[in-house]
């Protein structure tokens, strides 16, 4: 099963679609989770997920905004989609009946 950060990364990459690459994924992850995401954590996780066949990466175009340097584009594979779905189902099932899932305000009923 995926780890928490792996799931977040796959979900972010899937949401970004064709525009998914390192810097944007990192920015999006920080915005959605409110937590700092280091470049080290990002790229070692991308490598690990690619080794598992859950992501595919390739070198993209260079832009002036990046000082003429190439991007590392990311795409979620069908296997990655399935792994993320399994993780989501497991979390959803495990969360049934707990106060923070039923009462989204966080206050126990």
């Amino acid at each position: 099963m995926l780890g928490e950060f792996e799931y977040l990364l796959i979900t972010t990459a899937a949401r970004l679609g064709d525009e998914a690459y390192g810097a944007v994924i990192r920015e999006e992850l920080e915005a959605t989770t409110g937590r700092k995401c280091s470049i080290g954590a990002l790229y070692t996780t991308i490598d690990r997920l690619e080794t598992k066949g859950l992501l595919k990466t390739w070198m993209g175009e260079a832009t002036a905004q990046r000082g003429g340097r190439a991007k590392r584009m990311v795409r979620v594979t069908p296997k990655g989609v399935q792994a993320a779905k399994d993780f989501y189902d497991a979390i959803t099932n495990a969360s049934r009946g707990v106060s923070w899932a039923t009462n989204r305000s966080g206050v126990p009923s």
Binding site: G22, A23, R26, E27, S38, I39, G40, A41, Y43, T44, M59, A62, T63, Q65, R66, G67, R69, A70, K71, R72
Partner: peptide
């Protein structure tokens, strides 16, 4: 190439860039 591009795009300061690169190297 990719990491320097990301740092440039993110407008990171020199110290942040240094820490980011060292963090990745250590990992």
């Amino acid at each position: 190439e990719v990491v320097l591009g990301d740092l440039e795009e993110g407008g990171e300061s020199a110290s942040q860039s240094l820490l980011a690169i060292l963090g990745l190297v250590v990992r």
